[in-house]
């Protein structure tokens, strides 16, 4: 496969509970020369709730778009727009994903074992609200503009992130557990960013507070205990050293914890 393949049709096929044979006949797009599912995949099994995509690569785009219940496991990489507007269930990519994955996420869980591209959990073009619910865990690095306009939910990135994470964030929680983040939380209104190492912030935009025992932090840690062991260990091993509030430019009252 040299060219992008539009996988958004997957949800509709699963929802319609059509037979495997019929599913293989479904056209993947409305182009006249469109491929059928069967041209690329062999459909087998009976479980509509647990989909496994084998031998996936970065050209399969939009896997898990609008996904509501059940799991999708992607063996290999996935392309851009993975889990776009996902509403429930779990999408697990055992590799990297492309740009704008988890865009407009509205519930459920997206787990990425390797890296994610730009605009992870960001807003769809023209939408005022980005990720609105749900959880994204990236075990590798993530690109720029992560969590743009995010409103609710949780994003955790174990590795490094690109410039402008949590730009125009409305609310929600983002954990940046890797290296230094560049200009996170610009124009953030509310929300919590937790940085494992001191981020590069515009000094005029954020006010630094001394952070001594924070009740909410404890609640958050005990919540994370139920979610993911590795993150929980990181959080518990250190308590927040600093708290920044901002973005003052827009009278924001978001917070950035440095642990």
């Amino acid at each position: 496969m040299d060219f992008p393949v539009d996988m958004r049709i997957l949800k509709k096929i699963v929802d319609s509970r059509m037979s495997n044979k019929k599913a293989e006949q479904v056209l993947m797009s409305s182009r006249p020369d469109a491929l059928r599912i069967g041209d690329l995949f062999k459909v087998s099994g009976k479980d509509h709730q647990n989909i496994v995509i084998e031998n996936s690569n970065a050209k399969l785009e939009g896997i898990g778009t609008g996904w509501k219940r059940g799991t999708i496991k992607v063996i290999g990489n996935a392309g851009s727009f993975t889990a776009q507007s996902q509403r429930g269930g779990c999408v697990h990519v055992e590799g990297s994903v492309g740009d704008f994955s988890g865009c407009g996420l509205n519930g459920g869980q997206l787990v990425i074992d390797a890296d994610a591209g730009n605009g992870l959990g960001a807003s769809l073009p023209g939408e005022k609200i980005g990720m609105n619910e749900g959880r994204i865990v990236v075990k590798g690095n993530a690109g720029s503009r992560l969590g743009n306009r995010m409103r609710r939910g949780l994003i955790a990135v174990y590795g490094d992130v690109g410039v402008g994470a949590c730009c125009s964030m409305i609310s929600g929680t983002v954990l940046l557990l890797g290296g230094q983040a560049n200009l996170p939380g610009t124009h953030m209104r509310r929300g919590t960013i937790i940085c494992a190492s001191e981020p590069s912030l515009s000094a005029d935009s954020f006010f630094e507070q001394v952070c001594k025992d924070n009740t909410y932090w404890n609640i958050f840690c005990s919540y994370m205990e139920g979610c993911n062991e590795r993150i929980h260990q990181t959080l518990l091993s250190c308590s927040p050293r600093k708290r920044f509030v901002g973005d003052l430019k827009i009278h924001g009252m978001g917070e950035i914890f440095v642990i």
Binding site: I9, K12, L124
Partner: peptide, 15 residues
């Protein structure tokens, strides 16, 4: 332009 995101691509509606 402002309302562009208020409709889905046609082919996704086919089902």
């Amino acid at each position: 332009m402002m309302m562009a995101n208020y409709f889905e691509p046609e082919h996704l509606n086919e089902l």
